[in-house]
Each structure stands twice: as structure tokens, then as C-alpha cells.
Amino acid sequence: MNASAEAIAAKPSTVTADKLGQDQSTATTVGEITSANPRMRCREVNVWYDDNHAIKDVSLDIGQNEVISMIGPSGCGKSTFLRCLNRMNDTISTARVEGSIQLDDQEIQDKSIDVVPLRARVGMVFQKPNPFPKSIYENIAYGPRIHGLTNSRAELDELVETSLQRAGLWKEVKDRLDASGTSLSGGQQQRLCIARTLSVSPEVILMDEPCSALDPIATAIIEELIDELRAQYTIAIVTHSMQQAARVSQRTAYFHLGDLVEVGTTDDIFNQPQHKLTEDYITGRFG
């Protein structure tokens, strides 16, 4: 727990401000932060790790049935921001979050809001596939079991099957549901984790660089999957691969040193970036 806190806390300092010039301040975000049909609405979100100001006044909407990608150089705070959306930052004792984050007009930052149902509604897929050291079946059944979503074994079986099918994994594993989740390949593991997330029927799915640990073929499969899932879910994805952002998302947000520099439709961001920093990043000047 501490190690990961340190790792995350250390990130923002890896790209130093003076390297890029202090004058390129990005106090206000370029582009349209609002969405036509917003599911989540963030306003002036600030995050500190101890004294480290990791997210600065970020405001952003995430719309229904859209895939929004967050890009930016490493340490720009995109993952941190993503973790605010289902309060995963609570698990890091040094993290402090301020500002307003709403899910369907309900303030989730509020201390009275329970993280357990929140996280059931806002699921998350992590950078490294993290299947539990249990069987494939148990990996999927875990969520429904703890929440008591099913009443019988048959229902649970069915739910496991649908989840795996949605994640496109059913055909590959249906004969070995008792095999350990860790015995799968990296790409399969990540789809298993997606299936696990789907099993509790979330409304929003957060993906934190879901393909960074995978090979190109596995990446392609996952990207396809993300596109399919868009029909039912709202998806926010953090990625360091601009191509991936371009391929899977409808909107893109560019983060830089804790600031949300620019947000807009993916086409706009990649074809006609408004901000100098965005352009530099897109064109590969740094990153």
C-alpha cells in the first residue's frame, strides 16, 4: 500500500516544470469540457499527495455511452484523476482530494457517500492484469458473491457466462473454468479482469492503461472489446498510446503536469490541437 502510494506520488515529479518552461501556464482548459449527456461531472478537482499537487483544478464531463480517453506524458496526473472517479485514491493514505465529482448528480466526494456501492457502479480495470489467485470461475463470481447479486448457483453460472461472453473470453475458457486465473495469457488475464468488472453490472468503467502490459494482438482484441462495450457502458480510459486513444475514443482529454490542458473530440485533438502543449505532445516533441 505504501509502496504504491510512493510510486504514484513520485510520478508527478519525474517531468520537471522548468524543462518545459514555467511560462507555458495552462490555468484554463482549452476546448469543451462539458458533454451532451453527462454521466459523471467533475468540477475543479484538486489532488494532493502529501504536499505534492498532483491534479490542479480539473473540470471534465464524461458522457453516456462514450469512450473518453485521457492522454499525456507520464506523471501528468491522468491516472490519479481516473482513480478519483471511483475513489480508489481512498486506499492511499497520503492522498487528499478536493472539488466536486458527481455521478448522476450525486456528489461522490461527499464523505457520507459509501464507496462500496459507488465502486460497484463505477468499475475499474487496471494497468497490469490483476486476476485473483483463484479459478477463472471464482474470479468472475467474486463480485456477484460479495454483493449478493444472485440467488442460486444456476444464476451465478449464467452471470459468469454472460460476463465472460461480453469480455469475449467465453469461447477460450469455457472448458477450463476451474483453471487458475493466473494461468491465462496476459491478454486473456486482462479480459478476465474486464469480465470481472462487468460481472457486477457497473454503469461506468474506468480503464487505467489496460493494454500497456500486453502485446499488439492482445491489445487489438481489447480495443475491439472496448468499442463493443461502448453501447452499454460509459468508459473512461487512460492511455499513453495516442494511436489507441485515436482508435477507441470519441473524446480525448490531454493532461499535462496535473493540468487538464485541452479536451475535445478525438478527431479535433489529433488533427487540429488548439494548445501548444497538446500539439507538441501529439507531434511527438516530448512524451
Binding site: 462500496v116 456501492p117 460497484a120 457502479r121 454483493h147 449478493g148 447479486l149 444472485t150 440467488n151 444464476e155 449464467e158 452471470l159 454472460t162 460476463s163 461480453r166 462487468l198 460481472s199 457486477v200 453490472s201
Partner: peptide, 18 residues
């Protein structure tokens, strides 16, 4: 929704169940 249809009673949404 993904909630499998249950034989008895009105189906509750996962949110309610949670």
C-alpha cells in the same frame, strides 16, 4: 441489464441489491 432474470419476484437492479 445484465441482471439475469429471476424466476420469482420483481427483478431488482444491481444498484438496489448492493
Amino acid at each position: 441489464m445484465t441482471n439475469p432474470t429471476t424466476a420469482s419476484g420483481p427483478a431488482r437492479s444491481p444498484k438496489e441489491i448492493v
